[in-house]
Simulated scan of single mutants.
Amino acid sequence: MYKAYIENYLKETIQIAGQISQEEIEKGALLLAAARDRGGRLFILGVGGSAANASHAVNDFRKIGGIESYAPTDNVSEFSARANDEGWHTTFSEWLKTSRLSERDIVLVLSVGGGNEKASGNIVEALKLAGERKAGIISIVSRDGGYAGQVSDACIRIPVIADERITPHAEGWQGIIWHLLVNAIA
């Protein structure tokens, strides 16, 4: 019943593997290793399914990669209080200000679209702050990369193979890429 769908999905996955930029992945690995070596921290930002991925990635980067790592969405009380009291756009940037984001640190964005004026404005505001503070920026995104793609030091873009499956491929590949990065620098 689902055989054709499964076959097609896996063919698309193979196509993505052949098109993804190994150079951008290596840039990301170099940035992460350098941040770890200088005592910097890793802040992982994601919304929706990417927030769940951020939480899992925090574990891996801390336990396997040896980098002090955090995801603002792991503290749902603070995250929702900021959204309620200060507005959605502030949820990440104000959290990063309290965490004293600095040039030693890295912000890793997990996002399908990378943020723009209409969606994931909290990611956009966080990246503006990261730029002001000269923190490194790595993104794992799809589509055109959005704002994250424009400002990242390493932008790992998941190619769009099928418009109707942008989100599942992007969020699935976030896991593949962060696992690759963690184990490359371990």
Rank of each mutant, 00 (worst) to 15 (best):
Y2L: 13
Y2R: 08
K3Q: 09
K3G: 07
Y5F: 11
E7L: 12
N8M: 09
N8S: 14
Y9R: 10
K11W: 10
K11I: 11
K11F: 07
E12H: 11
I14S: 14
Q15C: 07
A17K: 10
G18V: 08
Q19Y: 02
I20S: 04
E23R: 06
E24T: 03
E24K: 01
L32M: 09
A33M: 14
A33G: 10
A34V: 05
A34M: 12
A35Q: 05
G40E: 06
G40Y: 12
R41C: 06
L42S: 09
I44H: 04
G46V: 05
G46N: 05
G48E: 06
G49N: 11
G49F: 06
S50T: 11
A51T: 06
A52H: 01
N53A: 13
A54Q: 03
S55P: 10
H56A: 13
A57I: 01
D60Y: 08
F61W: 02
F61M: 05
R62Y: 05
K63M: 01
G65M: 02
I67N: 01
I67M: 03
E68R: 11
E68V: 13
S69T: 11
S69P: 01
P72Q: 10
T73F: 08
E78G: 15
F79D: 05
S80K: 07
A81P: 12
N84C: 07
G87K: 12
H89F: 13
H89P: 10
T90W: 12
T91E: 02
T91R: 08
S93W: 08
E94L: 15
K97F: 09
K97A: 12
R100K: 15
S102T: 14
E103R: 15
R104I: 05
I106C: 06
I106Y: 11
L108W: 03
V109C: 06
K118F: 07
A119E: 14
G121H: 04
G121K: 14
N122L: 04
N122P: 10
E125S: 14
E125Q: 15
A126H: 08
L127F: 03
L129G: 04
L129Q: 08
A130P: 12
E132D: 14
R133T: 05
K134M: 08
I138P: 00
S139K: 00
V141W: 00
V141Y: 01
S142K: 02
S142M: 04
S142F: 01
G146D: 01
G146K: 01
G149N: 05
G149A: 03
Q150R: 14
V151S: 07
C155V: 07
C155L: 04
I156M: 05
P159W: 01
P159G: 11
P159V: 02
A162S: 15
A162T: 12
E164G: 07
I166W: 02
P168K: 13
A170D: 01
G172P: 05
G172V: 04
I176E: 04
I176T: 13
I176M: 11
I177N: 00
W178H: 02
W178A: 00
L180R: 06
L180D: 07
L181A: 09
V182Q: 00
V182Y: 05
V182G: 05
A186M: 07
